[in-house]
């Protein structure tokens, strides 16, 4: 690991030299950034691969698309049985309360988990084609967004079936979903980029996802359970905050906390920008890491 980062640093002056000295500037500048796949091709391959992956995923199991719905249903059922019936910690309208929390959280946790594996899984391709590594986490996150769209539609159908009245404030849901998507992309890129460098973190990420689940108030209402002075700290967790806002819109028909959403969006975009830089900087390192 240390060896390798040393390598990359050692390479810098060489490249600098290469870019300035030599034959013609035109040729030298092509040296480091010539990739088989340019930006236009990148997006063309991206969208083709995206639609193919969505189809391929369906053919892999008997129930296909149905699993995208069944998974949250199973989770919610389990949580309902444990917390609603056995522990009897239910709030009013507990099923609807659970659905809002679980559906949004499992989107986050599934996507981040998939991102974590995304670069490692595509070792073969990374070794055959010079492609920007952003491709892999972005593909995962977009693929999951489509699936989650289906889940959200089913969720809203279910909520209305359960007697929740759509309120005027529901127009803000797409904004909430977009902010959550940005957050997932940011965290997903960090996990995707860091795990090939330090494979040990794979275990840590799984644990962190689990901890985040407990700390996000999926099956309890933070207002009832937490001391007032801890509530602000609780809401510093972006997932807890997002889930709170989903419930605020869906259950209470109130508008979300725009300030909090803006903060999460800004934080996510900062992560994305940093990771774009990291991916650019370490682009060829990932192929090299596949050798180690």
């Amino acid at each position: 690991m240390l060896d390798n980062s040393g390598d990359e640093n050692a390479a810098v002056p060489e490249r600098g030299h290469a870019a300035t000295g030599g034959t013609a500037g035109r040729n030298a500048s092509r040296e480091t950034h010539l990739l088989a796949i340019d930006t236009r091709q990148f997006w063309a391959v991206f969208f083709t691969k995206l639609s193919m992956n969505l189809r391929s995923e369906v053919s892999r199991t008997y129930l296909g698309y149905l699993w995208w719905l069944l998974e949250p249903v199973l989770y919610v059922t389990a949580l309902y049985v444990v917390f609603g019936i056995f522990l009897h910690t239910r709030t009013e309208n507990f099923i609807v309360f659970l659905v809002c929390g679980q559906v949004t959280f499992s989107w986050f946790s599934r996507s981040v988990g998939n991102c974590t594996r995304s670069l490692l899984q595509e070792k073969g391709l990374i070794n055959q084609v010079a492609i920007q590594k952003l491709f892999f986490p972005l593909l995962v996150v977009c693929q999951d967004l489509v699936k989650q769209g289906v889940v959200f539609l089913a969720m809203f159908g279910f909520l209305i079936f359960m007697g929740v009245q759509p309120a005027a404030a529901w127009w803000s849901l797409p904004v909430l979903i977009l902010v959550q998507w940005l957050f997932i992309l940011g965290i997903g890129m960090v996990c995707a980029g860091i795990v090939p460098l330090v494979p040990d973190l794979k275990f840590l990420i799984n644990t962190l996802l689990m901890v985040t689940m407990w700390a996000s108030g999926i099956f309890y209402s933070y207002k009832d359970v937490l001391l007032r002075e801890h509530q602000e700290l609780f809401l510093m967790n972006p997932m807890a905050n997002l889930i709170k806002n989903y419930r605020q819109v869906i259950l209470d028909g109130a508008l979300p906390d725009w300030g909090a959403l803006a903060a999460i969006a800004l934080f996510s975009m900062a992560l994305i920008v940093v990771m774009l830089w990291v991916f650019r900087r370490l682009d060829t390192t990932y192929a090299r890491l596949a050798l180690q």
Binding site: A11, E14, G22, N27, L35, I126, T284, R288
Partner: peptide
């Protein structure tokens, strides 16, 4: 092809 980056020296593609 640019999958790996050379540590030393130059690769010039025309």
């Amino acid at each position: 092809t640019g999958i790996f980056r050379a540590d030393r020296g130059r690769v010039i593609r025309h």
